[in-house]
Nucleic acid binder design. Structure first.
Lengths: 177, 177
DNA sequence: TATTGATTTGAATAATTATTCTTGAAATTT
DNA sequence: AAATTTCAAGAATAATTATTCAAATCAATA
């Protein structure tokens, strides 16, 4: 008998908590959407099945809302879901930084928090970028002059936070302490 | 009896052609969406009524598709339509140019075409920006090294083209010859 | 251990949006 | 001037998506 027991849900998925499986699913959804052209929730449902996730359209609707995924007309006639970061087509060759990456110094975790150091005066603008994207994994931020305190949602791992932020903060991973 | 007759449609709208009224409506839709927070097509329908446009949900669905308007979850729980350019939240204070505006020299019309002059080597990147946004009013572009030829859709006026391009080409109006 | 509260989720349903089918008006051709 | 083609758009409907409601699970507390 183990001290740390694992559970199976009624749907047969391995889980330590509902929270955990939900976060996993959200991450997979993000990947699926950015890799494939997904035109409907039913389509996404099938892709998720192939990844071993069994769920329903209702849940997907909620997930997509949580991830702030937009549905937009595709150039090729149909529709496609897009992640909040993908909205502006990246790298047109000349594309300057939309994000003030230059101001970013470091990011380091402690517990369910991260401390982000910036160049003096940059904390607010960077924090407001984070806030405006409102990633699911982030509970909130407080910015001083050169430091941001970021509180992550319970049950969310550090890689989850890093991945979520990286979507709109290019080069973030290089700043990890 | 006049040589140039004006017509009224069965719906009582003044028009010289269906094309004309459609283009007008598309422009108004763009404005309404960027000014107000519009959460559904029915809502948009009402706003359009107030602007003097009488139409149906079916037409709006088609219009929004033509304009490549996306529907995305709003920060405040609901949903909101967003123009293809608005996708990234504007002016966070530090916002650098996403668009290579610096390369733009001039734009001048002739017939249903416009000739856009750029700094040497910029034509392609600028044209690809235009193409990637795929505005309704633009039929297509051809880029050389420092010149772009833009063909506008029939029935579309010059201001229509300018307005459409201005949405993602800041400062364009100043370059008008 | 019961109880309470908070969360996630599925099923059913409501609401919304896309499309089909058709009509009518304008442009084009014969 | 007919005849033909093209395009816009409404009505109806199909398809899709959001939400309501109930059930189940986990966490926290008495």
């Amino acid at each position: 008998m183990f001290l740390f027991a694992a559970f199976y849900s009624k749907r047969g998925n391995f889980l330590f908590s509902d929270m955990k499986i939900k976060t996993q699913r959200l991450n997979v959804i993000r990947q699926l959407i950015s890799d494939n052209k997904v035109g409907s929730q039913e389509e996404l449902l099938n892709l998720l099945e192939q990844e071993g996730f069994s769920t329903t359209q209702a849940t997907l609707s909620r997930d997509l809302k949580a991830l702030k995924v937009a549905k937009r007309p595709d150039i090729e006639g149909g529709y496609a879901y897009v992640l909040p970061e993908d909205n502006d087509d990246k790298e047109d060759g000349d594309g300057a930084d939309v994000f003030p990456v230059s101001g970013l110094e470091s990011i380091e975790f402690s517990g369910n928090m991260a401390v982000i150091k910036t160049r003096p005066g940059f904390a607010n603008s960077i924090a407001s970028v984070i806030d405006s994207h409102g990633p699911y994994e982030v509970l909130g931020t407080i910015a001083g002059d050169d430091t941001i305190l970021l509180i992550s949602k319970e049950g969310v791992s550090r890689p989850d936070v890093i991945n979520a932020l990286s979507l709109f903060m290019p080069g973030l991973k290089k700043k990890l302490v």
